[in-house]
């Protein structure tokens, strides 16, 4: 059996994900990192981007909106404000959020930075949801 590493994703609302995985690919603010079992201790800030979790050759994307990743040789903890598995994503809500954010971006009076973040979050969610759809078909 291949070596595995424990992955815990913790959000303020709940423990979003907890399982043994073979590899995690995360995008930090400085770029993508791949984490395998036995990784050196690391703390990094994460970008708004789907987290790729690989278990037994199968890949699951998890939508994340920022947060932190803390790595220890046999355990990864991710602290995120929100984390959603593909099947938990409300596509409709993400679509409306995206449209709203785009509107805000066009309107020069509104808070551009905030709208950008909102847009990114919506895009990540849609991307992850997309994966789920393909999987079903």
């Amino acid at each position: 059996m291949a070596k595995t590493i424990r992955l815990d994703i913790v959000t303020p609302e709940k423990m979003a994900f907890s399982a043994e995985v073979s590899m995690v690919i995360a995008r930090t603010t400085a770029g993508d990192i791949g984490i395998l079992p036995g990784h050196a201790p690391l703390i990094a800030a994460m970008a708004i981007w789907p987290l790729r979790v690989i278990t037994d050759g199968e890949e699951i994307p998890i939508s994340m909106c920022g947060g932190f990743i803390e790595v220890q040789p046999e355990k990864i903890t991710i602290l995120a404000n929100c984390a959603e598995l593909p099947e938990d994503i409300d596509v409709e809500r993400a679509e409306t959020a995206k449209a709203r954010a785009e509107n805000h971006l066009r309107d020069s009076n509104s808070d551009v930075a905030r709208a950008e973040v909102a847009l990114k979050r919506a895009m990540v969610r849609l991307k992850v949801a997309e994966h789920n759809k393909q999987h079903k078909m």
Binding site: P12, T28, T29, A30, I33, A40, P41, L42, I43, A44, A45, G66, G67, F68, E70, Q72, L79, N81
Partner: peptide
């Protein structure tokens, strides 16, 4: 005690972490 690698830097991580800590405490 374990020595962490900070990505990109400890200061950068701190910049993200402190506001989050505040939010969490208030929440």
């Amino acid at each position: 005690p374990s020595d962490y690698i900070f990505e990109p830097s400890a200061e950068e991580v701190l910049n993200h972490l402190v506001p989050q800590y505040l939010e969490t405490t208030i929440y």
